[in-house]
C-alpha cells in the first residue's frame, strides 16, 4: 500500500529540504533582493510569499512540461517569458483585489521576474525533472522562502512598530506604560540584513554541516 502513497520518501525530501538544509535564502543565496525589501510589515511579506509560491510552482510545472522542447541556447529567454507572463497575472490580480498592498509592494512584484530563486529553480531543477517532482520542488522552495520572509517580518514589525499584522500587540499588553519605546531602527532597511545575518548565524550554529570552510 505504501508503494502507492502520494508522497514517496524522496518526494518528502523535496518538500522538507528547502525548509532547512537547502533553504533558498540562507543557504542557496537566492531571491534575497525582494526578501529584504518588503519585510517591514507582516502583511506585504505574506502577500509576497504567496505570490512567489504561485509563480514558482506554476512556472516550475510549465518549464518541466516543456523541458524537452526548449533549446538550451535560448532557455534564459524562454524562462523570462514564462516568468514575466505569470508575474503580470499576479500583478493584475493583486491590483484588482488588494490594491493597498500592491501599492506597498510597488516595484517588487515586478521584480519577482528577476528574483533569482525562480530562475535558479528552473535551471537547477525543473529543466531536468518531471512535472510532479517540479511541482513539489516549487512548493518546498517557496515555503523555505516564505518562512524566512515571515520570521524576519515578524521581528521587524514587532520591534519596529509594536504591531503584528497591523494589530497593536504591544499597546494592548500595556508595555508602553512601563517605559518601552519602539525601536525605529528596525524599520530602516539595513536592519533587515542584520536580522537575516543573525538568522543565518542561529541556523548554522544549530546545523553544523552548513558551516562554510575558511
Amino acid at each position: 500500500m505504501s508503494k502507492f502513497s502520494l508522497l514517496s520518501k524522496k518526494d518528502k525530501k523535496l518538500l522538507s529540504d528547502p525548509l532547512d538544509d537547502n533553504n533558498p535564502i540562507t543557504v542557496q543565496v537566492l531571491g534575497i533582493c525582494s526578501a529584504l525589501a518588503i519585510t517591514v510589515k507582516l502583511k506585504p511579506a505574506v502577500v509576497m510569499a504567496i505570490s512567489v509560491l504561485a509563480v514558482l510552482t506554476v512556472g516550475n510545472v510549465i518549464v518541466s512540461l516543456m523541458r524537452k522542447m526548449i533549446p538550451s541556447r535560448i532557455r534564459i529567454i524562454v524562462f523570462l517569458v514564462v516568468i514575466a507572463t505569470l508575474v503580470i497575472l499576479v500583478d493584475q490580480i493583486l491590483k484588482a483585489y488588494v490594491y493597498d498592498v500592491s501599492k506597498e509592494l510597488s516595484v517588487f512584484v515586478g521584480l519577482i521576474i528577476t528574483n533569482c530563486i525562480i530562475m535558479g529553480r528552473f535551471e537547477a531543477f525543473a529543466l531536468a525533472n518531471p512535472p510532479y517532482k517540479a511541482f513539489l520542488d516549487g512548493v518546498g522552495n517557496s515555503f523555505g522562502y516564505g518562512v524566512i520572509l515571515i520570521v524576519v517580518a515578524f521581528f521587524r514589525e514587532l520591534l519596529g512598530s509594536g504591531t503584528l499584522y497591523g494589530y497593536p500587540v504591544l499597546k494592548n499588553l500595556g508595555i508602553y506604560e512601563v517605559g518601552y519605546e519602539n525601536n525605529g531602527m528596525m524599520i530602516l532597511p539595513p536592519m533587515a540584513l542584520i536580522t537575516v545575518g543573525i538568522l543565518i548565524w542561529w541556523q548554522r550554529a544549530r546545523n553544523e554541516k552548513l558551516i562554510e570552510e575558511k
Binding site: 540562507t26 543565496v29 539595513p190 536592519m191 533587515a192 540584513l193 542584520i194 537575516v196 545575518g197 543573525i198 543565518i200 548565524w201 542561529w202 548554522r204 550554529a205 553544523e208 558551516i211 562554510e212 575558511k214
Partner: peptide
C-alpha cells in the same frame, strides 16, 4: 557559524 555568508550580511547592514 557566521563565517562567509552571515558576516557578509551583517557588514552590508
Amino acid at each position: 557559524a557566521l563565517r562567509g555568508l552571515g558576516i557578509t550580511y551583517i557588514i552590508t547592514g
